[in-house]
Amino acid sequence: MKRKIPVIITSLVGTVLILSVFFPPAERMGEDFSIFFDIIAVFAFFLGGGNLVRIHGNKIYKKARDWGFSAVTLAGFFLMLAAGLFKIANPGGIAADVTAQGSLFQMLYDWIFNPLGASMYALLAFYVASASYRAFRAKNKEATILLIAAFIILLGRTPLGVYATAWIPEQFSLMQIPNLAIWIMTAPNLAGQRAIMIGIALGVISMSLRLILGVERTYLGTDNE
């Protein structure tokens, strides 16, 4: 029973959602199921928050390696949670928007979360440069093609690409670096992406059918869990 009920729910919801696309009478049911999904998605936040507290709480309790980071994580989590739940310093009071300017939540977001997140992303520039230096080596034919494509795209994404090849006559404009970069994106890249997308779509269809028919049950976990 523990396994049958989830399989029946999955089959029913999957079938109705497919039917709702093709048969107007089932459209309303499809909408209702979408709303159920959105409600369930809200509970994922509780689950995620609970899991975060459990894992980092355990680390702090056991004084595991780098437990200090866990303490910072939990402090940040509870501070943001309190600021959002109780709308601390919110100009409009408890009934107003949590993101109102001047509220503690929005201040923490603007002055701590935002710069920290941006700094983390900015570090990518350094790692991309280091990785490019090590990875882009013309070791064979394929790697050389990749290297040339990378060069064109890198130049094409800067104004220097325009300046460097502006002298090329209009009838050969495809050879101008920005146009070559666009061609790479809209021809070879497009063909590759479409092939991958079609492959993924076929995979999703077959996996969905397996789920709806109850053949695929790994999402339920094992009986031992």
């Binding site: 440069a129 490019s132 230096y133 090590r134 220097l160």
Partner: peptide
């Protein structure tokens, strides 16, 4: 971004020269 791209390209060239 322009200058960073140029530096990355320069290092790719340098990397390939030292490799060969």
């Amino acid at each position: 971004q322009t200058l960073a791209h140029l530096v990355i390209m320069a290092f790719i060239i340098i990397g390939n020269i030292s490799f060969f």
